[in-house]
Design a protein around this nucleic acid. Structure first.
Lengths: 137, 137
DNA sequence: ATACCAGTTTATAATGATTCTAAAGTATTT
DNA sequence: AAATACTTTAGAATCATTATAAACTGGTAT
């Protein structure tokens, strides 16, 4: 597990006070080589198991939104009752298994760059997201 | 405005009883050459203005879900507080203006076919949706 | 026509994710 | 150490959507 000091510095640099709760959430989210997808309720469960600590639901929401604003997380556009987040903030796309409610990364090599030929006057493209819904064969 | 008999037949063919409410919603949704995007609350407003009739919110939800199941509507994957539907059921993609909460169609010629090179054993692709988020320049 | 049945509509309540509130707590600055 | 600004928190509020169950209606058989 990465030591707190590294997260403390990371948080400070972003203008976020390094509180106990934020450090704990950093550890749960970023203390792994593999990136992953999660919902808020997934994260609450992870905090309860990985860290033996209870963080208020409001704080979890606050923190995730703060991290998203700082660019440490990305929200993924899916129509689902819950919002999904991704610790992989690079440009990439997703499979979504609607049965298992599971997201799977598509690497850059899995999808050719999507070129959008249409332009809207006065508007610029912020992001291009491809969502591939999959189902059992 | 298309006459009711045509919608009555269309509904019957799909195994849906042609009720007053369903016919009215058909007229509001399909009585136009141009397809469009809407949320449930958009639709409720449309029904109130175009048709001078009140349809219960529960019925609007029921009907839209029935129409979606029959393939007369498509749900669009966006992370938004409300779900968006599209009367254009052909394969196409979208711009989404997050400020104005507005969807704009991308025609086939605006986006090259998206080829997905990755496969998941036992799973087949159901849909490929591209969502292009746009913002003021 | 009439009566019946399955499918529909409806008002209202329930649900559930998310956001708000405002009081108590904590990091940082003076 | 005190002041200040930012955070956390429990619980309430919000809001889209879904569930409930009673009243209603279209289609069919009599």
């Amino acid at each position: 597990m990465l030591s707190s000091p590294e997260y403390i510095e990371k948080l400070r640099k972003s203008g976020l006070r390094p509180t106990k709760q934020r450090i704990k959430i950093c550890q749960v989210l970023f203390d792994t080589k593999k990136t992953f997808h999660f919902t808020i309720s997934d994260l609450v469960k992870l905090i309860e198991t990985k860290a033996n600590e209870k963080i208020s639901l409001a704080t979890v929401y606050n923190t995730i939104h703060a991290f998203e604003k700082k660019g440490y997380l990305k929200e993924i556009s899916i129509n689902s009752s819950q919002t999904y987040f991704d610790t992989n903030t690079t440009n990439h796309h997703h499979f979504f298994d609607e049965k298992q409610k599971e997201l799977i990364d598509l690497e850059d090599i899995d999808v050719d760059p999507v070129k959008i030929k249409k332009t809207i006057p006065g508007k610029k493209i912020k992001s291009v997201e491809v969502l591939v819904k999959i189902d059992s064969e």
